[in-house]
Write a protein that binds this DNA or RNA. Structure first.
Lengths: 144, 144
DNA sequence: CCTATAGTCTACTTAATTGGTAGACTTATA
DNA sequence: TATAAGTCTACCAATTAAGTAGACTATAGG
């Protein structure tokens, strides 16, 4: 049930990007330095976010990353689900044909409710909302 | 965010054990056959459940597995948390000292709410409740 | 046009985890 | 005392996660 570091790094990077408030793109170097994430590793993550249409990029000097849509239209669910595949805990919840006993399986009900609860929480957090929560503490960084 | 097969097998095995309703222990062989789980693999899982005081065992002929407590006192949270470690998605939610920025980290709030929501769902499902939901369909089995 | 900046692509490495298996050993019933 | 059961130790293979390296491409600005 652990979230991959990819999801967590993505969340932190997106917030860093959102802080620019559309003024100018932020470079990967700056994100890495403030978030203490390896640049090459973050590259993989940002490419995926770009392909998902969550962020956009500009190459060359003065280039960098910026949000592809309004912070109010990006949720934590959008970000996390890219890296965790489906967020459902069990395959059969996504694809009931996978399990012959699906219709009457007692445990299935647990996994379904779990997924619904998770989605609800993740969808409730937009980047906009997180920006309101955010506050800068220079000199401190994440350890995970 | 996927649940390991250990958790899922454990849940299914526990339900199988609970079906005996304390009459006599059920052998691993019987559980495996009805649940289509490898006996050696399930052994590892059942040992862990035993060490957690969730089930108890009797060795030798007429031996097998039975619940160590009342089905109403065993929740899905008890079972899942053994195999997933903590169910929290991120370390810092368990141990805030791990992260220097914890106090004001905007993403932390998401992971915390996620954990709370998960716990709530898992704790709401007791084995007793699942037994009421359960229904037998002989000849069919789980595919996952 | 050249150069420096900054993203992109491909491919690798390493370590951990997951899922699973084998076989010797212990316990206890009949 | 034979046999049915759980237990312990140790291994194996496949996958995924995390991270790295280096060549390549695009573009702003002089």
């Amino acid at each position: 049930m652990k979230l991959s570091t990819r999801s967590r790094y993505a969340a932190r990077a997106i917030i860093e990007i959102a802080k620019q408030r559309g003024e100018k793109p932020i470079t990967r170097k700056v994100i890495c330095e403030s978030q203490q994430i390896s640049s090459s590793y973050l590259e993989n993550i940002l490419i995926i976010l770009k392909n998902q249409g969550i962020i956009k990029t500009i190459r060359g000097p003065k280039g960098g990353y910026s949000l592809a849509k309004d912070p109010a239209d990006i949720t934590m669910f959008d970000i996390v689900s890219v890296f965790e595949g489906s967020i459902s805990a069990v395959h059969c919840v996504d694809d009931p044909t996978q399990c012959a006993r699906y219709e009457k399986c007692p445990t299935k009900i647990v996994w379904e409710e779990l997924m619904v609860a998770q989605q609800k929480v993740l969808k409730s957090f937009t980047i906009e909302r997180l920006m309101e929560i955010d506050c800068k503490i220079p000199g401190l960084e994440y350890s995970i």
